[in-house]
């Protein structure tokens, strides 16, 4: 499920080291320095999907914060209704949505804050938190059953 070919760089966080990126030290950077977000022309970026863009090594899209996380959200496609609540409230832009469909989670940018799980309206939730090292298949197998609504007693 997480095998999504949507990510522009598959070696996030390592691209600069491998390319022999020479970073200037703090005392070498001059005033008015510019970090380009993209390689080449950046016209019309607003209408380009992430996989169509040419991110430069300076863009934080090519970096990772996966090490911040101790629990991770797991996405269950079978229950999701594509309401996109998680997309609009994800603080780390790590919900991957294309053509009104929720596809998965960008685990390189997710910090495990659990906001997406809180705002998920389905029953049971289609996003749940599991241990960072939990197996995807096992997590999906242990998904909780639908909870029945508690009926109000007639006397009350």
């Amino acid at each position: 499920m997480q095998d999504l070919k949507l990510l522009a760089n598959d070696n996030r966080g390592r691209s600069q080291l491998e390319a022999g990126f020479d970073l200037l030290g703090w005392d070498e950077v001059t005033q008015g320095s510019v970090l380009p977000s993209f390689d080449g022309d950046a016209t019309g970026i607003a209408n380009m999907k992430a996989e169509e863009r040419t991110y430069s090594g300076y863009n934080s899209y090519t970096a990772t914060v996966a090490s911040w996380r101790v629990i991770k959200p797991v996405f269950n496609r079978d229950i999701c209704i594509d309401c996109q609540n998680c997309w609009v409230w994800c603080p780390d832009s790590s919900i991957l949505s294309r053509d009104k469909q929720m596809l998965g989670i960008d685990y390189d940018h997710c910090k495990g804050c659990e906001v997406c799980v809180e705002v998920c309206p389905t029953n049971p939730k289609s996003l749940l938190m599991f241990n960072e090292h939990a197996d995807l298949e096992e997590s999906l197998a242990s998904w909780p059953e639908k909870k029945k609504k508690e009926k109000k007693s007639e006397e009350a």
């Binding site: 380009m48 992430a50 603080p91 009104k100 960008d106 940018h109 997710c110």
Partner: peptide, 26 residues
């Protein structure tokens, strides 16, 4: 609606170092 809103392409990228759950980035 949210579905149409979600077809937009993000121009604010992840892997910034705001706290998990920070409302700034939302």
């Amino acid at each position: 609606n949210l579905k149409e809103f979600s077809t937009n392409n993000d121009r604010f990228e992840g892997a910034h170092t705001l706290c998990p759950g920070c409302a700034h980035s939302m």
